[in-house]
């Protein structure tokens, strides 16, 4: 069943469609929430996300754009728990050296997951959305409410931070 069809059926009030929606999207939501928060908070926040999704579904304008809408809600729920971390000023982007494809190769998915928790929330979030959730740059920009250029800069900085961490651990040279 396509996402759009699932959303339309949910908006019609079909209970099986709600179950299908949760079955399809719970893992991506939980992955995002879990990478951003502790295990103790993840289940409750994931539930908050789903309740907000169900409340918001009747007003969802573009069912085909469900994924960015869902992650915008998830991000709001996470940022409510991480107000202090999100308020931290970002390192000026111009000062960041650009880390290109060579580092992408190093970003083995499993290795990234292990090391994500050491990164600040802003950088961790963009890596989770782009690499673990496979969202496009445009979707990441919509979810984080920032321009696409800023998404690219954050990704570059996040990759650099991750790379530096791996170098320190001796995982890469």
């Amino acid at each position: 069943m396509s996402n759009e069809l699932m959303i339309i059926r949910c908006r019609l009030g079909e209970r099986e469609a709600f179950a299908e929606l949760v079955r399809t999207w719970h893992d991506p939501v939980w992955t995002y929430v879990r990478r951003m928060l502790s295990a103790a908070e993840a289940d409750d926040v994931a539930q908050e996300v789903w309740l907000a999704v169900f409340r918001g579904l009747p007003r969802l304008k573009e069912p085909a754009r469900f994924a960015p809408w869902l992650f915008t809600i998830a991000r709001r729920a996470v940022s409510n728990r991480l107000r202090v971390e999100y308020a931290r000023p970002e390192v000026p982007i111009a000062a960041d050296p650009v880390v290109g494809d060579a580092v992408d190769v190093l970003l083995d998915r499993a290795e990234m997951i292990v090391n994500l928790s050491a990164l600040p929330v802003i950088e961790r979030e963009i890596l989770v959305l782009f690499y673990l959730e496979d969202l496009s740059l445009e979707d990441c920009a919509q979810i984080c409410a920032i321009p696409v250029g800023t998404v690219k800069s954050r990704l570059s900085r996040a990759r650099r931070m991750l790379h530096d961490r791996l170098v320190r651990k001796g995982s890469v040279e």
Binding site: V22, H26, W30, F54
Partner: peptide, 17 residues
Amino acid sequence: MNPEEMYGRLSGHLSLR
């Protein structure tokens, strides 16, 4: 928590009644 457990937690909120 797996999807079924999550749906179980949510189903009360989805009751038509």
